[in-house]
Design a binder for these strands. Structure first.
Lengths: 185, 185
DNA sequence: AATTTAGTGTTATAATATATCATTGCATCG
DNA sequence: CGATGCAATGATATATTATAACACTAAATT
């Protein structure tokens, strides 16, 4: 409920402060921490499932977690090449398939782009908010949305399997800064 | 929310019977009638707005309304060519842009495909159910879904502009016929 | 070590979508 | 009516996103 405010400076940086404030990260949050967390989760998940978190997979996961902006497959490819890795589109798509299969990243159908998931593992039903100004994406798992969809679908005799909910709009920061330049991202 | 039943034979064909039964059309419905209705609506809308419903636009709209299955841009292109029309991808995409701009068709981002809209005009917020077995798509405009999304977004300080809701699953018919062959479409 | 399987490299191509400029056709105005 | 302007279409080229198929390597299993 609390609006994201630029005045929330990370100084007394409790871990929780970054996690529970809402789906969008604070603009001033410690992103290195996000990345570290993403890797701990990925490592734990792969260990549990006896999966191989190879160098390539780590590299791709890292690139995706460079920001909270969805990354296109060919953007990822370019970054891999910059890092000296010989890579082709297949390299990227195969790796993304692996990461998606295990819930470590999601694909945004409305943008043909990929974004990291901060609670991988369970095959959850999530929704995405994507700011059309700064490009930031946030994931929610709101049961009221899921339920509303399931109920409406059921009324049509339809059995839901894979709901896609991707909402374009303006994030709190960009609403506040409305009118100013659009190069936040 | 009466289930769709094959026993609804079109004989005493009230206009309403086809329209209000739910988002999915009856499998035995009079589809010619759907097409006619789609064209009356398109003609009325274009007349109202002083738009030109040209031959090309009619052709594309007709192709899209050949069924309730989303059609890919290149499928539409192929059909146009079959009809003797000289056409290139641009032809199709331009025409689709026009039809979408005026709400006559919608694009399904999760399928890169286009489907006719049976209540064009208002810039409505609709949701789509797409059967993964028979491929049929149905449009809903359920305010509970729209509201749930808006409320959840607002809690994140996010202002909704364009919600994309596209649900894959099984339609009533395909749930009923579950286990049988999957060539309904 | 031999075998098997998962992962990656590589090349080619498919599928979807847009940019740009030329041409045609329709509407309107003088 | 013909000149003018603009909307629509034609046509060519190219960008962007994604997959197929096969060869090779590395890791796990025996």
């Amino acid at each position: 409920m609390r609006p994201v405010m630029r005045s929330d400076i990370p100084g007394e940086k409790t871990v929780a402060a970054e996690a529970i404030s809402g789906p969008f990260p604070d603009p001033a949050h410690d992103h290195e921490h996000c990345i570290e967390e993403a890797f701990s989760r990925a490592e734990r998940l792969c260990a549990d499932r006896r999966l191989r978190l190879t160098t390539l997979r780590r590299e791709v996961l890292k690139i995706i977690w460079e920001g909270h902006h969805p990354a296109g497959a060919y953007d990822i490819l370019d970054r891999l090449k910059e890092q000296g890795r010989s890579a082709a589109p297949m390299t990227v798509y195969r790796t993304l398939d692996f990461l998606m299969e295990h819930g470590l990243v999601h694909r945004l159908a409305s943008r043909n782009a990929f974004v990291g998931c901060d609670h991988p593992g369970d095959h959850h039903r999530s929704q995405f908010l994507v700011c059309k100004n700064c490009g930031m994406a946030a994931e929610m798992a709101d049961p009221r949305i899921t339920d509303a969809i399931r109920v409406a679908a059921a009324a049509a005799g339809f059995a839901v399997e894979a709901p896609v909910v991707e909402v374009t709009g303006l994030c709190g920061d960009c609403v506040s800064n409305a009118g100013s330049i659009s190069d936040e991202g």
